[in-house]
Design a protein around this nucleic acid. Structure first.
Length: 401
RNA sequence: GGCGAUGUGGCCGAGGGGUUAGGCAGCGGUCUGCAAAACCGCGCACCGCAGUUCGACUCUGCGCGUCGCCUCCA
């Protein structure tokens, strides 16, 4: 797996610094959301040699041509399936319709730049070590082909990106890469829809613009955010609302409660939870079906409900509970919701333990007013919930206040 | 304007021509000293109008709304 970092415009020192800052923030956000790292994070600026190689070949094959100003353009007329990805008929496409007609050097309005000849406006941003290309900079799409081919080969399985990249970026990537290699570029394109916020597009002027760190600073659990993101299929635009974020938090809580309950089951019953097999199968099937994460979550809840029922019936011992926990751990290697953090054995502080003891003593003495006062204090001051179960007292941390 | 996508119950959100998505919230109940947790029960949802069909929320057309692209950036 590889994620390209396009920073071609960033040779200016001040811009470079800014870029590094954003890259750092990007990785921090990935960590916050528990997003697994890709194997490679290639940088466009480290792939310019490969870009030059591709351009050279396209030029030699006359798929590309040089314009009067020295720029090199891709001739889309040489790529018959151009437009297929985006369902666009080139003949009907008014490429550049909204561009002022100052690009006379292109043969067709849809032709796109592979190499832009140096222009005074480019300032310090140029490469001049490729005499056959001339002084200039790479076009806007070539870097992705170069990075992909270098790391993943001439043909690979999946390529992802936002829907906004379908045209022209991904279409151009295909044209460049396939003309260069003569091979099918990728098997599957996965295009993710855009996030909406309160049913509107996120924008600063609409006042509904915020970053991941804005949310976490407000105290929202990153895993609730991740859950919310998983609750919609990647292909459909998720309507982010704070209401939905709260719902996600509650959903996650009930999974967490189930896990705590499972960890409590220490009986010798040999019975297994029947739903484990069903849930596993449904979960895998859902993911195999174009990463249907909402359906995968439904499979999790199938296990939760059936598992809770079995526990209520007293059918679940440590064996059955362990098998269910194993499945949940397996599921969480995909879901990445840190389900393992829900444990029963956190330590209480001395002060907390004292409150618990006082509550228990008061309860035993049937002084319910005092018992409830201690319980409320634990909840409101310490975020600890006490539960009286048939097996005795149970407590959990991290309750919402 | 053109192209593509989409419109599901209070909220989020799957789905597919006829049989329960799932979660959250709400209401009623079981359990509990009370709670909490859990369980049980309750919602006759599919933008509008036509059409195809024995039957459509699911297919087709039109209309309306929303999102994306068609320009920069990538």
């Amino acid at each position: 797996m590889a994620t390209g970092i396009p920073e071609l415009e960033d040779k200016l020192p001040e811009v470079l610094e800014l870029t590094e800052r954003y890259i750092k923030a990007f990785f921090e956000d990935l960590d916050t959301l528990n997003v697994e790292r890709a194997e490679h994070y290639p940088r466009a600026t480290e792939s310019v040699d490969k870009m030059a190689e591709i351009i050279r070949k396209l030029l030699a094959d006359q798929v590309a041509y040089r314009s009067e100003d020295g720029s090199i353009y891709y001739n889309i007329a040489r790529f018959p399936s151009y437009g297929k990805l985006a369902h666009i008929e080139v003949g009907e496409l008014k490429c550049g319709a909204r561009v002022s007609q100052d690009e006379y050097e292109k043969e067709s309005a849809c032709d796109f730049a592979l190499w832009k000849a140096y222009d005074a406006e480019d300032g310090e941003v140029y490469w001049d070590q490729y005499p056959d290309l001339g002084k200039g900079r790479p076009g806007w799409h070539i870097e992705c082909s170069a990075m992909a081919i270098m790391l993943l080969g001439e043909h690979f399985d999946m390529h992802t990106g936002g829907v906004d990249n379908i045209f022209p970026h991904h279409q151009n990537e295909i044209a460049q890469s396939e003309a260069f290699t003569g091979k099918t570029f990728v098997n599957y394109w996965l295009h993710s829809a855009h996030l909406q916020v309160e049913a509107c597009k996120m924008s600063k002027s609409a006042g509904n613009f915020f970053t991941l760190r804005d949310l976490t600073e407000q105290g929202h659990d990153p895993m609730a955010i991740r859950y919310l993101l998983l609750s919609a299929h990647y292909k459909s635009s998720l309507n982010f609302t704070f209401n939905a974020l709260e719902a996600a938090r509650s959903s996650l809580d009930s999974i967490a409660n189930f896990i705590r309950r499972l960890k409590d089951q220490q009986g010798a019953q040999r019975k297994e939870i029947a739903a484990v097999g069903e849930a596993r199968e449904r979960f895998e099937k859902a993911l195999a079906d174009d990463l249907n994460t909402p359906e995968a979550l439904a499979a999790v809840f199938h296990l939760v409900r059936e598992g809770n029922q079995a526990i209520d019936k007293g059918d679940v011992g440590s064996l059955g509970a362990g098998l269910a926990l194993d499945l949940l751990r397996k599921m969480d290697t995909v879901l990445g919701l840190h389900l393992d953090r829900y444990a029963q054995d956190d330590e209480l502080t001395a002060e907390q333990q004292k409150l618990v003891d006082e509550r228990q003593a008061a309860r035993k003495a049937r002084d319910f007013a005092l018992a409830d006062a201690r319980r409320n204090e634990l909840l409101e001051v310490h975020g600890i919930v006490l539960e009286d179960t048939p097996q005795g007292l149970r407590w959990k941390k991290g309750a919402r206040i």
